[in-house]
């Protein structure tokens, strides 16, 4: 497996001196193949975001093994790109400069950036055109709509050609039409660049439409309770989401999550 998590346990220390430590993930095992598009769904607060932080090396688990591309993860991995629900573009930078930010951090680009700036700028412009933001590079983030900001955010996650893309509900805050547009953009990018994707989402249709494989997580402490292959051919037309098989798969996932929620009792409320 390209991304491999085995028996992972993650506990956050208590927020207050006398509080209980929070067990976010326990016995979590999942594997994603190279070039595969995986989605992770689950009830809110199940530790989906913790999973992201583990796979990118931002956090270390207390137990278990995590490896990416055959090597154990011991710290931040620059071969990954990340995008969150909040586009978090820097308001003092133009869109182009925002997209190019990772190049200022990741080696070997950071050393080459100054001498090859024109080349890199072209690369960023090309990427912006690919997501439909051609010509918007000189705008500032606040001059872009929410959907456009999220497109720019995707570009920023992709500019350094990551082999693994981690997405944490990137389309969660968008309206339905923009979201469907961006699903298309995402599917096209995945087809063009062949990276591996782990998408964390609570939108089941989004998971089924985009992914090759959907993992269902239980409520906290989170672990993978089910795995479903998505059989549909690519490229997938937007109409697919209204077809019988698609709807059945979504219903199936819905049932699994409903079980996962009721299994823990209604009183347990966890923060994301």
């Amino acid at each position: 497996m390209y991304v491999d998590l085995k028996g992972v346990r993650l506990e956050y220390p208590a927020a207050e001196p006398r509080g209980e430590p929070v067990l976010a993930l326990e016995e979590l095992t999942m594997g994603v193949g190279e070039g595969e598009f995986a989605a992770v769904v689950g009830p809110s607060g199940c530790g989906k975001s913790s999973l992201m932080r583990l796979a990118t090396g931002l956090r270390r688990p207390q137990e278990g093994d995590i490896s990416v591309a055959g090597a154990p993860v011991t710290g931040p991995l620059s071969i990954t790109g990340m995008a969150f629900q909040n586009p978090s573009l820097l308001p003092w930078r133009t869109t182009l400069a925002n997209v190019m930010l990772p190049l200022e951090i990741v080696r070997p680009h950071r050393g080459r950036l100054r001498r090859h700036r024109a080349e890199y700028e072209q690369q960023a412009e090309d990427l912006l055109s690919l997501v439909g933001l051609g010509g918007f590079g000189s705008r500032f983030p606040w001059q872009l709509s929410g959907g456009m900001q999220q497109r720019a955010n995707l570009c920023r996650a992709l500019i350094h050609d990551p082999v693994l893309l981690m997405l944490d509900e990137p389309f969660g805050a968008l309206d339905a039409f923009t979201r469907e547009e961006l699903w298309q953009v995402m599917a096209d990018l995945h087809a063009a660049k062949k990276f591996t994707v782990i998408l964390v989402t609570h939108d089941l249709r989004e998971a089924v439409y985009l992914a090759d494989k959907v993992f269902v997580m239980s409520a906290r402490p989170g672990k993978i309770i089910a795995e479903r292959k998505v059989p549909f051919e690519r490229p997938r037309p937007m109409d697919l989401i209204y077809e019988r098989e698609f709807v059945d798969l979504v219903q199936d996932l819905r049932g699994l999550i409903a079980d996962a929620r009721s299994g823990t009792g209604a009183g347990q409320r966890a923060a994301a």
């Binding site: 090396g57 990340m82 996650a157």
Partner: peptide, 26 residues
């Protein structure tokens, strides 16, 4: 914002990078 810092730290940014790219302009 923690997300902004995460985006940089996940790329292997040092504390100094985070400060000069985000902290000080901010």
């Amino acid at each position: 914002e923690p997300e902004t810092e995460d985006v940089l730290r996940a790329l292997g940014a040092s504390k100094w990078d985070v400060m000069t790219k985000i902290g000080i302009p901010r």
